[in-house]
Design a protein around this nucleic acid. Structure first.
Length: 169
DNA sequence: ACGATGATGAAC
DNA sequence: TTCATCATCGTA
């Protein structure tokens, strides 16, 4: 079952645990999502939205269910899905899917780049998220600090990286 | 353990 | 104009 805007039009910290166990689907196949990170609003010092809207981060300020794809360190594409509530500038970084360990490897393997930025995560553009009936219980989920954002002060300590314990290293 | 990678945007 | 960044891979 395709996940639609109502799933994503909620606070990002509520959507994150619900995304674990869902499937990322492309022309190449379907992969179960096993690790994600939340970036919440403009006062989260780790979020690209922290300095307001720019050319790069504009999709974060649009409505939920859009994709936010950007290049990091001049090398790797990062795939995010925008969440709510409403046009609250928040997004979820997809870090791992089953057998593809790492946000940069994930996008490289699935050939996800700039051309996927800003669009709705629907079937027209061949990159969407499905519920395939996998149930992930709360006690199977671990919450840890986010990766690569040590500069973010108090925000760096927030345990906004969600993963299925079974798939952690 | 560390440098290279090289787009984007903030700080200077 | 310079510097840091939501990562990964070579080389040591």
């Amino acid at each position: 079952m395709l996940l639609t805007p109502s799933f994503f039009d909620r606070p990002v910290l509520d959507v994150c645990p619900d995304l674990l166990g869902k499937f990322l689907v492309t022309k190449q196949g379907a992969w179960m999502i096993t690790e994600v990170e939340a970036y919440d609003w403009v006062d989260d010092l780790a979020s690209h939205a922290r300095h307001g809207k720019t050319d790069r981060n504009a999709p974060m300020f649009w409505e939920p269910w859009r994709r936010y794809v950007y290049l990091v360190y001049g090398m790797y594409w990062m795939l995010n899905i925008v969440t709510g509530p409403g046009e609250h500038p928040s997004a979820i970084l997809l870090r791992w899917v089953e057998s593809l360990a790492g946000p940069g490897k994930l996008t490289k393997h699935l050939e996800i780049s700039k051309k996927y930025n800003g669009q709705l995560a629907d079937k027209k553009t061949w990159l969407w998220i499905e519920d395939r009936g996998v149930i992930v219980k709360k006690n199977q989920i671990a919450c840890l600090p986010r990766i690569g954002i040590d500069y973010a002060g108090e925000w760096a300590k927030k345990e906004w990286r969600f993963l299925i314990k079974k798939y952690s290293i």
